[in-house]
Write a protein that binds this DNA or RNA. Structure first.
Length: 520
DNA sequence: GCCGTTTTCGGCCCGACTGTTTTCAGTCG
């Protein structure tokens, strides 16, 4: 997929325009940024779109008009984009990496290049070490110090971190803040709340009468590596897991609006604000305003959505992928709830004593690994039911699972297996290829025809929500498995549920809601 | 450069924070 390559070029073009430009050209830069984001979230291969439908097809993609369609065509036809090459001659700068340093944007990057020749991360590092930045116009001693900090954070962080790791820490921090007794309310926001598979940072909101004490508690938590900013309304800390965490103090009246705003996504919020304007109102993190008056004061998020003529949109759907249109028409998918599963579809430990856990999760049964069947990645899982309140019953009900990764180069055999051998579940679908590829479609077709469900591995979060999002219109069924290796890991199921929610998969297609009898 | 059930021109989300200013530019979310 060249989508990403082109998106990267568009981002760079945008940075170069922003660095050099005046107010007017910043809109042009925004257009390139929007097109880049659109390409990044596009499921289809842009080259295929262009080759089969020409520029007209490209212009159907949101954010892509005539000019940018020309540029995409130029890239596919010739391998380069002249506008990009020309800009690069003037700005031979690694914007992509440098913009990732907190506190550095296009303008300051250009300033650093023009004045002291900083082109990339290495140059920046040297400039900081030699204290060459503090005397530059628009910079000072403090800026140099902050850049030094940001650089360290960038180098020590692993970029985006996996959701399970970040989620666990977010919950820990939330519970810690609650336990201080200082807060009236604490909520996790941001991409953690949207259950995005990877997190750039962690966002927490709190209502408190004692902001200073709260900030003290926050910045002195045991897992804080360093304090990046500390104020009365917002503080930022670097965590042990290679990411940063923001805590914002919110007023009670604004909490709903703030939670909506800080949950994002950015694209979703931009659309929300436009919808508010269409209703003669103004939406921001402080409230929903009609003639200066916050009509959403003291209300929760769902009030804001309803006031704007929308059904409530679950956080996992807030990516501007059609959820606002669906909410306007009352056609949002009925996604599965976190506490509604009747089963975990595959675990890998002895569940015969797991009655407490089964009760805790509300399961009527669990399917547990029951041994490998052959060398072709086929294995069996057995049903264990909750027998009254006190024991777990091993049953004679078993199901066959097949591991798609054993058939990477032999999709036809896999299809044959699914059709002929009464395979009930398929794992590792994403090992075969990407959505839209013919071999993947073939397998999906076979699964749909043979009542074989796609199994989600909640622990490794695969297939991804983006992968499954592209299958949302198929009839294929989904089974969510924690693949827990011990009772503690049963909680991973949450991430599998999150994947189906983000993928718009409706609850009636989730096997976990069925009774074991219906499963057979 | 994109976009349009008030459109083919004239808009483009918007407010906080921060450091470096002497009234604001740049960055962020």
């Amino acid at each position: 997929m060249i989508n990403r390559d082109i998106a990267r070029i568009f981002n760079e073009i945008a940075y170069m325009i922003q660095a050099s430009g005046d107010q007017r050209s910043s809109f042009e830069a925004n257009a390139y940024l929007r097109a880049a984001r659109s390409l990044e979230s596009l499921q289809d291969d842009i080259e295929t779109v262009y080759r089969s439908g020409g520029k007209e097809a490209l212009m159907k993609i949101p954010g892509i008009g005539k000019g940018i369609a020309d540029r995409i065509a130029e890239y596919i036809d010739s391998g380069t984009i002249k506008k990009y090459e020309d800009l690069r001659k003037n700005y031979p700068i690694d914007f992509e990496t440098l913009t990732k340093i907190e506190g550095l944007g296009p303008k300051r990057i250009l300033m650093l290049y023009r004045s002291i020749g900083v082109k990339d991360l290495n140059d920046l590092k040297k400039a900081i070490e030699d204290h060459r930045i503090r005397d530059l116009p628009g910079f000072g001693e403090k800026s140099e110090e902050i850049l030094s900090q940001s650089l360290k954070i960038y180098e020590s962080s692993a970029g985006r971190i996996p959701l399970p790791l970040g989620y666990a820490r977010a919950v820990e921090i939330r519970d810690y803040l609650i336990q201080t007794g200082l807060a009236e309310r604490v909520e996790i926001a941001g991409s953690t709340r949207r259950m995005k598979d990877t997190l750039g940072d962690i966002d927490i909101l709190a209502v408190t009468e004692k902001p200073l004490q709260m900030m003290d508690a926050f910045t002195s938590m045991p897992k804080v590596k360093s304090v990046i900013a500390k104020g009365e309304k917002k503080s930022t800390v670097a965590l042990d897991i290679g990411t940063t965490c923001d805590l914002r103090i919110i007023s009670r009246e604004s909490f709903g609006a703030a939670l909506q705003y800080f949950t994002g996504s950015k694209d979703h919020n931009i659309r929300m604000r436009k919808i508010a304007i269409d209703h003669g109102m103004k939406l921001n993190e402080y409230g929903l305003f009609r003639d200066q008056e916050n009509v959403a004061a003291g209300h929760d998020e769902d009030y804001i959505y309803r006031t704007l003529g929308l059904s409530y949109i679950d956080p996992e759907l807030r990516e501007d992928r059609g959820e606002l249109e669906a909410a306007q028409m009352g056609k949002l998918p009925d996604i599965v709830k976190y506490d509604s599963l009747n089963a975990d579809m595959c675990v890998k430990f002895d569940v015969s004593r797991a009655h407490d856990e089964m009760k805790k999760y509300g399961y009527g049964y669990i399917l547990a690994y029951d041994g490998s069947e052959d060398a072709h990645g086929v294995f069996r899982i057995r049903a264990y039911t909750l027998n009254g309140n006190y024991s777990v019953q091993k049953t004679e009900t078993t199901f066959r699972c097949i591991d798609a990764s054993s058939f990477k180069d032999d999709v036809d055999s896999l299809v044959k297996y699914i059709k002929d051998e009464k395979v009930r579940f398929l794992t590792n679908l994403d090992a075969i290829g990407t959505p839209g590829e013919e071999k993947v479609s073939k397998i999906i077709g076979a699964c749909t025809a043979s009542r074989c469900s796609i199994m989600i591995d909640s622990k490794s979060m695969r297939p991804s929500s983006d992968f499954l999002f592209s299958l949302r219109k198929n009839d294929v069924r989904i089974a969510i498995a924690s693949f827990a290796g011990n009772p503690d890991e049963l909680s991973y199921i949450r991430f599998g549920i999150g994947i189906t929610r983000r993928a718009w998969i409706s609850a009636d297609r989730i096997d976990n809601l069925l009774s074991v009898e219906k499963l057979v």
